[in-house]
Amino acid sequence: MGNLKGVALPLLFTFFVLHLPFAESNWIINYHIHVTNDLPLLKSPPNQPNLFLQCKSKDKDIGERGMVKGQDYTWDTPVNFLRTTLFYCKARWVGHKTRSFDAFVAERDEMPCSQNHNSCMWSVRDDGIYFSKNNETWSNLYPW
């Protein structure tokens, strides 16, 4: 009986290692997070970023980006095995306000985002940061 345990664990480990590339390509879903600058245009200077957005997780910093009206900040992420994947952002509306928000929380967003081809849609507007699961109906989840 003790010999069986000594063989079973290495066999299980070998099975998972050999099947890992298959699992990554077929079982792990990537989610696409989109944050769009829908703030009013700056009066002056024209065509200058009026929104600065920095997004990151515990393990990955996507970086800060200055955005003009209509620009999209996009990245992809898989959900980890424990479903604790979390990306948060800090939005700074030049000359107005700053707000942090959770752009992707696996347990909260997997189901609604999967209804839109695994895309999570965010819109930064003058009264807050909106979320949509279908790019048609929007909810202000993070008022300024």
Rank of each mutant, 00 (worst) to 15 (best):
1 M>F: 09
2 G>M: 09
8 A>S: 14
9 L>Q: 08
9 L>S: 10
11 L>I: 15
11 L>Q: 09
12 L>V: 14
13 F>G: 05
13 F>V: 15
16 F>W: 12
18 L>T: 13
26 N>S: 11
27 W>E: 14
30 N>I: 00
30 N>M: 07
31 Y>C: 06
34 H>M: 01
35 V>Y: 01
35 V>W: 02
36 T>V: 02
38 D>E: 13
39 L>R: 03
40 P>T: 07
43 K>E: 14
46 P>F: 02
47 N>M: 09
49 P>E: 07
49 P>D: 09
51 L>M: 12
52 F>N: 14
54 Q>D: 06
56 K>E: 15
57 S>A: 02
57 S>R: 03
58 K>E: 10
62 I>C: 05
62 I>W: 03
63 G>F: 03
65 R>W: 02
66 G>H: 02
68 V>T: 15
72 D>Q: 04
75 W>V: 01
77 T>I: 06
77 T>W: 00
80 N>H: 09
80 N>V: 11
81 F>Q: 10
82 L>R: 08
83 R>Q: 14
84 T>P: 04
84 T>F: 02
86 L>Y: 00
89 C>W: 03
90 K>R: 14
91 A>R: 02
92 R>A: 11
93 W>I: 08
95 G>S: 08
96 H>F: 04
96 H>T: 07
96 H>L: 11
96 H>N: 13
96 H>R: 13
98 T>M: 11
99 R>Q: 14
100 S>C: 06
101 F>T: 00
103 A>I: 08
104 F>Q: 10
106 A>Q: 04
107 E>L: 07
108 R>W: 00
111 M>Y: 07
111 M>I: 08
113 C>D: 11
115 Q>E: 11
115 Q>G: 01
116 N>I: 02
117 H>T: 07
120 C>S: 12
127 D>W: 13
128 G>V: 05
128 G>W: 01
128 G>K: 03
129 I>M: 07
133 K>H: 11
136 E>H: 11
136 E>S: 11
137 T>I: 13
137 T>N: 12
137 T>L: 11
137 T>G: 03
139 S>A: 05
139 S>I: 09
140 N>H: 00
141 L>G: 00
141 L>E: 05
144 W>F: 12
